[in-house]
Amino acid sequence: MSTTTSTQVAPSTRRPLRYYQIGSHLFITVMLLLSLIPTYLLITWSFKNGLQYRWERWAISFPLRWSNYGAAWEIVGDYMINTIIVAFIGLMGMLLLSLIGGYVFARMDFPFRETLYYAIIALLMVPWVLSFIPAYMVYVRLGLLNTRLSLIIPELAGGPIFGIFLMRAFIAGIPEELFESARCDGAGVLDLIGRITLPLSLPGLATLAVLNFIGVWNSFLWPLVMIQDDAKQMIAVGLYKLARSATYGGVAGWTSQDFGVWGPLYAGYVIASLPLVLLFIVLGKFYVEGLVDSGIKV
């Protein structure tokens, strides 16, 4: 097709194209608004008292009842602190093991390197349903039932599987000259990892940290079966139990008259979402890239 015909075609196609663009904008906006409804309801409900919750379901009720948040924090705060402690300890270990593993596989040459590497990566193919029941039994046998360690270990042991995969690719991209000149200055392996690899692979580590933190924050079935002691419970299970007691038995410290438990309950949900929001604001780039890349690469 010659260029002249295509330029002749252009004006006639422009008008449908504009309609198409407007139509797309409309469709996308409607879809996004629909998917935001639960989030909208969550936030408005969190500021209501019982009567407002009963009678003003869709509208924002004034004055905003901030005291719901104080009441919610009394209960949700402990679960959140538990989860942050577990996530932090697990993350530090997981990042260290992933960094070291990534370096060894990307930068060192040794017999059976690829065999060992694929032995790790193969674990990505094992679905969790296969290991869920036997893993529980192994943890029980090791006396880890109802301990925080039982929540940290899955992150520490399982996290580096994807971590090493990601960090190997990342560290392989660092120019060799940097390592070479450091070696000339007499740097050992630990120096090469700590002084050169670590500072240069911070974006990769940030992505890993974000993905793992989301995973820990959402972990539900494992803490549900491992932890019986409410004082050690993680946030997702904590919210589940809180919702049950709000529905069936009432919650100590919250008024159960006239639907009074609902405002604080939703305030608790909002508080539990805040760490993820904060994470997104601070590390949004790694958040999105991590999610997308992990999808593309696996």
Partner: peptide
């Protein structure tokens, strides 16, 4: 992204 910032358990309970 905004709806993804709500933890899964909260979405289910909602």
């Amino acid at each position: 992204i905004i709806p993804m910032l709500v933890p899964l358990i909260v979405v289910i309970l909602l």
